Simulated scan of single mutants.
Amino acid sequence: MAPRRSRTKKTLSLSRTRPPIFRAKHTALSSKATRNLIRRHHRLLKKRAQALKSRDEVLAEKIEVQIQQNGGLESYQLASKLGQSLERGGDSSKFLIDWISPHLSRLEGTKSKLRVLEVGALSTKNACSMNPYLDVTRIDLNSQEPGILKQDFMEMSLPCDAADQFHIISLSLVLNYVPDAIGRGEMLKRCVAFLGKSPLSESSLQITPRLFLVLPVACVTNSRYLTERRLQEIMSSMGFVLEKSKETSKLIFQLWKHSQGLQPKRFKKEILRSGKTKNNFAIIVK
C-alpha cells in the first residue's frame, strides 16, 4: 500500500477559515464527531487564553495554529449549527418561544414587537427569528449568512437610552464559548446593561426583560467550580430571578427574569465539589 501523503494546512485568521470538508460534507458528520470537534475547539481556546494570560506569545501562536488545523471558528459554528438541526434534537430557541408565549399572545392585534438580541446567532430561520412578534437583532463573531451582523457582543457600544436596549437577550451555547472565567462574568454583567423595561411602541404594555441561557449540562452538574446553587447566587446578585428551567442529558435551558438593578457581588473561583472526573468550567465575577 502506498504511504498517505501529508496535507499541508495553511494558517488563516479565524474569520477567514473555510474548511472545504465542512462546506461540502458537514451534513455527513456523526453526532459523536460533531461533539468531539466542539470539545477540541473549547479546549484549545482555553489553552490559548491561559498562554495569553501568562504572556507566552510563542505558545499562544502554536495553539492558534492547532485551532486552525481543527477547523477554526467556522468549523465550530457549522458543527454547532448541525448539532441544532432537526435530526440532532432541533432548535434551542423553541424553548424560548414556548416560555414567553403568554407575553406574545398579549401583542395580538397590535403592531408592537419585543426586541430580541440573539448573541452567537447561527441561523435566520430558527423559531425565534420566524416569530412575528419578535424583532430580532442577530450578531455573531463570524456571520454565516445575510441577516446576521458580524459583531462581538463584548465590544458593542453600551445603550445610550431605552431605544437601544432589548426585552430579551439569548445566550444559547455562548457563555461556555468564552475561554476564561472572568470573561464569562463580564458577559453576564454586560447583559444587564442591554436589558430594559421600556414600553412597547403603540402600547402602554411593559415587559420585564429576560435572559435566555443555554449551557452544556456538564458545565453546571459536573464542574468543580460551578453548581446550580452557585449559578443561582451569581444571577441573583445581578437582579435575575429564575423563571423557567429544563435539563436534558446534554443541555440545560434557563429563562431568567431581570427584576431589579443590583450591584453584582464578587464571586471567586473556588472548589465547590471535588473529583477527578469533574471539569473546570467556572464563572468569576469581579
Rank of each mutant, 00 (worst) to 15 (best):
P19W: 14
Q206Y: 09
I283Q: 09
K46E: 11
F194Y: 07
L231R: 02
S129H: 13
P264W: 08
D91Q: 04
V58I: 05
I38E: 06
V214K: 02
Y177I: 05
S112F: 15
P146M: 10
K47W: 15
F166R: 00
D180T: 06
R4V: 14
L117Q: 09
G147A: 07
P132E: 12
Y76D: 01
S204Q: 14
A193I: 04
M235I: 01
P179E: 05
G90W: 14
R106D: 09
C128Y: 02
L251Q: 09
L215I: 02
I38Q: 10
A163V: 09
T208D: 13
L171D: 11
S143T: 11
R18G: 00
Y76T: 00
P132T: 10
S203P: 00
F281H: 05
E247I: 10
A218R: 13
Q260T: 08
L73A: 07
R48G: 00
K244L: 02
D152Y: 03
L14Q: 14
H167E: 11
M130T: 15
R224D: 01
Q151A: 13
M238K: 08
E202G: 00
I284C: 08
T8I: 10
A33T: 09
L134N: 04
C160E: 15
S172P: 04
H258N: 12
Y76Q: 01
L211H: 13
N176S: 12
S236K: 07
I97E: 04
S15E: 15
L12V: 12
Q50W: 14
G275I: 11
L262E: 12
S198F: 12
C219Y: 09
T110H: 13
M1R: 13
F194G: 03
F153N: 11
N126S: 15
S30K: 12
D140W: 10
Q84A: 04
L242V: 02
L215P: 02
K265F: 03
G109R: 07
G72I: 04
K197P: 04
L104F: 12
I252N: 06
R210W: 03
L37T: 07
L14F: 15
A121V: 06
F240G: 02
L171A: 14
R266T: 13
N70C: 05
P179Q: 05
I207D: 04
K111G: 12
R43A: 02
I207W: 12
T208W: 05
L205T: 14
V119D: 05
I100V: 15
L114M: 15
L195P: 02
K250N: 07
V174C: 06
